[in-house]
Simulated scan of single mutants.
Amino acid sequence: MAEQKEATVTFGVLNETSDTESRVALTPDIVTRLGRNGISCIIESGAGNAAEYTDEDYQDAGATVASRDEVIATADALGFIDRPSAETVAKLKAGQWVIGMLGSFTDTAYVESLSNAGLVGVAIEKLPRQLSSAQSMDEMTSQNSVMGYKAAITAANAYGAFLPMMTTAAGTIRPAKALVLGAGIAGLQAIGTLKRLGAVVTAYDVRPASKGEVESLGAKFLDLGLDFSKGQGEGGYARALSAEEQAQQQAAVDEKASGFDIVITTAKVPGRKPPVLLTKAGVNGLHRGAVIVDCAASDLGGNVEGSAVGEQVTEGGVKLIGAPYLASGVATTASNLLSRNVADVLSHFVRDGKLGMDLTEELDNALVVAGRIETAEKKEEK
């Protein structure tokens, strides 16, 4: 067993389990890994149960299992799947670090509340993906990969026929035709999973580079007869389309979608309203029994016009599933990946045995969204 360094920083994780959340931001193997770097872990009792990790698993790995109040009182930094509620923020102490998906793109008031509380906020959604040193910290990539896999499984489960072609004594069953809109991390994983299940897969994305990626997985690239040559935005994410481009895309997708049995949409724009890729006309054009899984469904809307979180059946018999919580449905794997992301972000900021930052570094400057001035001044005083 690798030698454990004397702990100088304490990392805490709270129980975030809810009706829609089964993941945990720390797994037992990461407890051991952090211990080698001089970081001790404290976790709220029951936090890992929904992801199949017991309190005993954490204790065996070297973590302290405690009450919620004890975790808050002890931790130097806390890791979150999402972000702490206003009630939790009120209980945190000035100087503590908060690491998670903080919604900093759209909720400046929340970031300001962290700063006003004297907390240091580290927003993983602002991770500059182009930096090779940041790849293992990219929670959005890891969780989108899980989401894409689960989207394909969800669609297959909801579809009332086989996905693969089968030849039986009673005749040959044709394979299902699936369309994946958005060929980023989630889309590519959905494509690969649908292919493994035997479906005939077609995909589309506005980014020119995605065509080769789609075809490398054995899928066809949907030709809409359109050219959005500047479809890729900063950091590798898809950019939001202009109003004219959206209208052109929607009309073309609506027309093409009618030939498919399954449609999966994955086009999220971080922190912003997702683009509508399939209108009501497109939905109505699908045959009875067709299935749509909208991974981008949220309070801000979705990729499918009229979609909402949950399942609905249209008057035409199309199943429309708004599924933003798919990663939580594969909680064990999702937690394994997410906890590594959060732990690597934390480890990056442990320098000389203490939590600290250098705001001249690109990665630090991108991730630290609250507590900047206070922390910088303290550093200067030292």
Rank of each mutant, 00 (worst) to 15 (best):
V263G: 02
L226H: 15
G259L: 12
E245W: 01
S229I: 07
A257D: 01
A240M: 14
A267F: 11
I264G: 00
E245L: 02
S242V: 08
I264K: 00
K256H: 09
K256T: 06
A252L: 11
A251S: 11
A238V: 07
G259M: 11
D254P: 03
D227A: 13
A251K: 09
V253N: 05
S258K: 15
Q248L: 10
S258M: 11
Q232A: 10
S229A: 14
A247H: 07
K230D: 15
Y237N: 06
G236Q: 08
A240W: 05
A238K: 00
A238H: 00
E244S: 14
Q250L: 14
G233P: 01
E244G: 13
I262G: 05
D227L: 10
D227P: 08
T266N: 00
A247Q: 12
E255D: 06
K268C: 11
G259H: 13
Q249L: 14
Q249N: 13
S258Q: 13
K230L: 06
L226K: 13
K230V: 03
G225N: 14
G231N: 03
Q246S: 13
S242P: 01
K230Y: 08
Q248E: 09
D261F: 01
Q249V: 02
K230W: 02
T265M: 02
E255Q: 14
Q246P: 02
Y237W: 04
S258I: 11
G235L: 01
V263W: 00
S229E: 12
V269Q: 03
L226E: 15
A267M: 14
E234L: 12
D254I: 08
V263E: 01
G233I: 05
E255V: 04
Q250Y: 06
Y237S: 06
K256S: 12
D227K: 13
D261V: 03
Q250R: 15
D261A: 01
I262V: 12
S242H: 06
